[in-house]
Design a protein around this nucleic acid. Structure first.
Length: 436
DNA sequence: TCTGGGGTCCTAGGACCC
DNA sequence: TCTGGGGTCCTAGGACCC
């Protein structure tokens, strides 16, 4: 492979229509039938079965705009069920880690692997073996691409999905002429080139990955920054992005939601912000971290051009980092009060915690002693909420009426993560299978 | 009526210091 | 009246990813 530098082969394992595949695991009657999964608040379509893709419904499309089509073609609709998807994802990753020593969990539905060039004599065969093993052990169909860099492995996976053949794998090897392959890839389909950059490149006459790798490096850096230049090097076959086996240290943790209906009152925003802070603080403690910076934002609906628009945010630095829910809520509500303006239709609020340090990292305020009772209180609350559900014990600030809560009308059960929602399999005649 | 959420990285520009 | 230059840090905004 003369044009490919580097000693390693990279692979990308990408779950097909992942959220839809997860829902189908427990609804085998939906195989080969059109299915979509909605975003939070049932707002956008974020996963589509192949049948739905053929109807021309695009990724991220607003649900309400396609309701008629969805009804017409009898598409089954699910609200998103992240506990289910997270659990199935873990199973897929476990299978890969049993097969390969070097695995990077890149996202909920993708993993990179890498191994020395030449480890497997027949890469096509190995890709098929990997794919079949994941499918057999988890029920999730995947596509797999191999290439000499991560970016080219991504492109190989793109070819694997594009091919109408059933094997869903693609290996970039000596038989392929890299330039011929890249001539068939639109710049917008390159990992790292988003819509803005793609538009910009096309305006200047660069339409394909092949045209891009032939551009001058200085020009590329000016157009796409150093990150874009790295992408181009990878497209040329020079590895610049390495495999990250350990998940990177978190720099921020946030929670934000759109409301189920417009919100006007400060009191409702306070409940929402307190609720999001509670959730973020729980995530913080689950990762063994404390935060010292808390950022709160509120905004109106920018799609409603006819309405008065307002968005604002405020960042507060705590005198001492904390993971204590009440402390964080107090700071969040102080910021909220400072930015709240009456008279607007608010659509979304959120909080972002940063300045994260390990919980055992002590940087005490000169005059404040730590309160050991607050630590044991939080531990008790987390234990109870893990056992009985996350709403069991909460701060009074989160409210009781909560009419701002987001919608999730079509949610499937937490089949694999909640005892009360386990699927019940009934004995059935051969060749049929039903789930109650 | 109804348009997601959670992240990361890069750069430009201002503040500040010596 | 005339009034430097370089380094660092921080932040906002824009780009990207799934």
């Amino acid at each position: 492979m003369k044009q490919f530098y580097g000693e390693k082969t990279f692979g990308l394992i990408d779950c097909n229509n992942f959220y839809v595949s997860c829902e189908r695991l427990f609804r085998p009657d939906l195989a080969n039938k059109p299915v979509v999964v909605l975003s939070n608040n049932d707002g956008c379509i974020i996963a589509r079965s192949n049948e739905v893709k053929k109807l021309g419904i695009s990724m991220g499309a607003p649900y309400f705009k396609h309701k008629a089509l969805i009804r017409k073609y009898n598409v089954t609709v699910f609200s998103s069920n992240y506990p289910l998807y997270g659990d199935i994802s873990q199973r897929v990753m476990d299978v890969l880690m049993q097969m390969e020593p070097e695995v990077e969990v890149y996202s909920i539905d993708e993993a990179f692997i890498t191994f020395p060039k030449g480890k497997y004599l027949d890469l096509e065969n190995y890709a098929g073996f990997l794919k079949n093993t994941v499918q057999r052990d988890t029920g999730i169909p995947v596509s797999i691409g191999f290439g000499p860099t991560k970016t080219l492995a991504k492109i190989a996976t793109w070819f694997a999905k594009k091919k109408s053949s059933t094997d869903s794998t693609f290996v970039m090897n000596d038989q392929h002429h890299l330039e011929t392959l890249l001539a068939g890839v639109d710049v917008s389909d390159i990992w790292g080139i988003g819509r803005r950059y793609a538009d910009r490149l096309k305006k200047q006459g660069v339409h394909t990955a092949l045209a891009l790798i032939q551009c001058n490096d200085t020009w590329i850096k000016k157009q796409l920054t150093i990150a874009g230049l790295r992408t181009v090097m990878e497209l040329r076959g020079i590895p610049c992005i390495s495999l990250e086996k350990a998940p990177p240290v978190k720099k921020s943790i946030g929670t934000s939601r759109s409301f189920g209906q417009p919100v006007h009152a400060l009191s409702a925003l306070q409940e929402a912000v307190a609720t999001y802070t509670t959730q973020a603080a729980f995530k913080l403690r689950s990762r063994g971290l404390k935060a010292s910076i808390i950022h709160v934002f509120i905004r109106t609906n920018s799609f409603r051009k006819e309405q008065a628009q307002y968005c604002n945010s405020k960042t507060l630095t705590l005198s001492e980092s904390s993971s204590h829910t009440a402390t964080l809520i107090k700071a969040a509500l102080t910021s909220l009060k400072a930015i709240y303006q009456p008279g607007y239709h608010y659509q979304k609020a959120g909080i972002l915690l940063s300045g994260l340090v390990p919980e055992n990292y002590e940087q005490l305020h000169l005059f404040n002693a730590p309160d050991p009772s607050s630590i044991s209180l939080m531990e008790a609350v987390d234990t109870i909420n893990k056992r009985w559900g996350r709403d069991t014990i909460q701060s009074g600030a989160v409210g009781l009426i909560r009419d701002w809560c987001h919608r999730q009308l079509e949610k499937s059960p937490a089949y694999t993560t909640r005892w009360s929602e386990l699927p019940i399999v009934k004995a059935a005649p051969p060749e049929t299978f039903s789930v109650a």
